[in-house]
């Protein structure tokens, strides 16, 4: 498939920006900085445009086409946010945020207790013996122990055995359970780290596949050479600065 000139140019830019952003892994350099700023600027501009488009389709269009005048009220509340640029009248911005917070909070709170507390608690009440399935039995026992242990670990107000942590039977049970809780959390963090690696590698595979595509390969090679030059230049600049710095400090020592 032959891409239009404009699309080919876009692919080249994308390839160059990708290489230059990855070049930070080796050394901070001028091309990385350029790409970073370009990305932030484009992202801000894009989000602003799409935000305006969404307001136009869901807020202004109903007023203009359907005559739904009620939509003027939220638009006014939205405009109040700009009040913070009005100096002594900055307080009017609070009415906008008050409205947004109020609506958001009431919507979330309406179902949060059931969705986030009751359902989760119910899901953690598991049968400790599953007939004919030893793996599930062990899994359920471990889950219950880790939940209790994890919760106990974060209870700071009460420790069995008092402040001196006397080696009473209840304290020993508490100690064993919190240890199980800690190990459970460690396993959880380990899984999280492994999954983070998986995601980052997947992102990298995606970018590398793109960089190796026939449309982007030429730009990738040129961008890599430029990035290598920028990294070398960055190293030499750093060395020059550190040499100048040490010469200055030795000069100051001699003077004193």
């Amino acid at each position: 498939m032959v891409l239009p000139y404009w699309d080919v140019f876009g692919v080249w830019i994308a390839a160059a920006i990708t290489v230059w952003l990855y070049s930070f892994a080796f050394k901070d350099n001028v091309l990385y900085k350029f790409s970073e700023h370009l990305f932030l600027g484009v992202a801000a501009g894009y989000s602003f445009t799409l935000g305006l488009d969404a307001i136009s389709r869901t807020g202004i269009a109903p007023i203009v086409t359907e005559g739904e005048l009620g939509y003027i009220v939220p638009i006014i509340f939205g405009l109040l946010f700009f009040g913070k640029y009005l100096g002594r009248y900055a307080w009017i911005a609070r009415y906008g945020s008050m409205f947004v917070l109020g609506v958001g909070l009431s919507l979330a709170v309406r179902t949060a207790p059931e969705a986030f507390i009751l359902k989760q608690v119910a899901a953690s009440i598991l049968p400790l013996y599953v007939p004919g399935d030893p793996v599930m039995t062990i899994t359920h026992i471990l889950m219950v122990l880790i939940i209790i242990g994890g919760l106990l670990y974060f209870v700071f107000t009460f420790v069995p055995g008092g402040g001196e942590r006397r080696p009473t039977a209840s304290y020993r049970v508490y100690e064993v359970l919190t240890r199980i809780g800690i190990y459970g959390m460690m396993v959880g963090f380990g899984a999280l780290f492994a999954r983070t690696v998986m995601t980052r590698v997947a992102f990298f595979i995606g970018r590398l596949t793109f960089l190796m595509s026939p449309e982007a390969l030429g730009a990738t090679i040129v961008a890599t050479i430029l990035a290598a030059i920028a990294i070398v230049y960055s190293y030499t600049q750093e060395r020059r600065r550190s040499t100048a710095g040490s010469a200055q400090s030795s000069g100051a020592a001699q003077t004193s």
Binding site: K119, Q120, A123, R195, T199, A202, I205
Partner: peptide
Amino acid sequence: ALSVIAPSIEPFVAAGQAIGMIVGQR
């Protein structure tokens, strides 16, 4: 979901609030 997100949303699947999840590239 992304692989990195999976542990955070696992409780919803375990509680039956979702029918399941497809996690990451795998």
